[in-house]
Design a protein around this nucleic acid. Sequence first.
DNA 1: CTGGGGAAGGGGCCC
DNA 2: CGGGCCCCTTCCCCA
Length: 260
Amino acid sequence: MPRSFLVKKHTNSARKPNYSELDSPTVFLTPHIYRGLPPPVIPAPDTLSPAAYSPITVWTTSSLPLSPLPSDLSPIPGYPSSLSDSSSKDHSGSESPRSDEDERVPPKLTDPRGAEAEKFQCGLCSKSYSTYSGLLKHKQLHWDAQTRKSFSCKYCEKEYVSLGALKMHIRTHTLPCVCKICGKAFSRPWLLQGHIRTHTGEKPFSCPHCNRAFADRSNLRAHLQTHSDVKKYQCKSCSKTFSRMSLLHKHEESGCCAAQ
DNA sequence: CTGGGGAAGGGGCCC
DNA sequence: CGGGCCCCTTCCCCA
């Protein structure tokens, strides 16, 4: 259940996807690496214009604000890489035992084992350095690397690079947001909000094409695909297109044509 | 069986 | 740092 693919949108512009680049009504093949993010093909980006989108505020609970849909909407051409914590990219190559440091190395920092040793080797990765200070610097990198990912969840095996991310994750275990109506618990307030709509029946997101309303923005987005002539998700093998990735997956798993 | 809707989970980004 | 929101994804169920 790897929601491993949480993409980022690039954006400086008010977090809105750049649809202007999506004018070509072409269907793209969806390489595996793009799994969840097939190239953008949604036509008429204006389908979700605020005007077409009618908030039917019916909150029974205090006030559960719902921001209007963005005026443009489309698949995001952003891809992974985000998962790999931007960790050490510079560490490996940092072994430049430059000698300009040699002279600054105090005698007692030179090889602890004796003067005959010409190299200083890291016990962790076996990299060698000509100076002890170089080795120390290198070892610091190991420390950095270790401490950087030291935020681990006590409920599961997950680790995070920041405390904030960890706390967010921990909520998925503690589920602090409880529905007063049915008692169901959620990790985040907005998840609870969405859930409450299932009780209130509120559907603030309406389709500009058929006026069908949805309680969830993402569901509207998926629904819009059904109006589209060009489906976003295409089978690599038979080129058949689907409105949802899950349908494509089903298709592929069911054997499709050849490959797979 | 397929397509679509409903509901929910979760990481990332912005404020 | 935390809250709010964004977006994507997945699972389940039904027509």
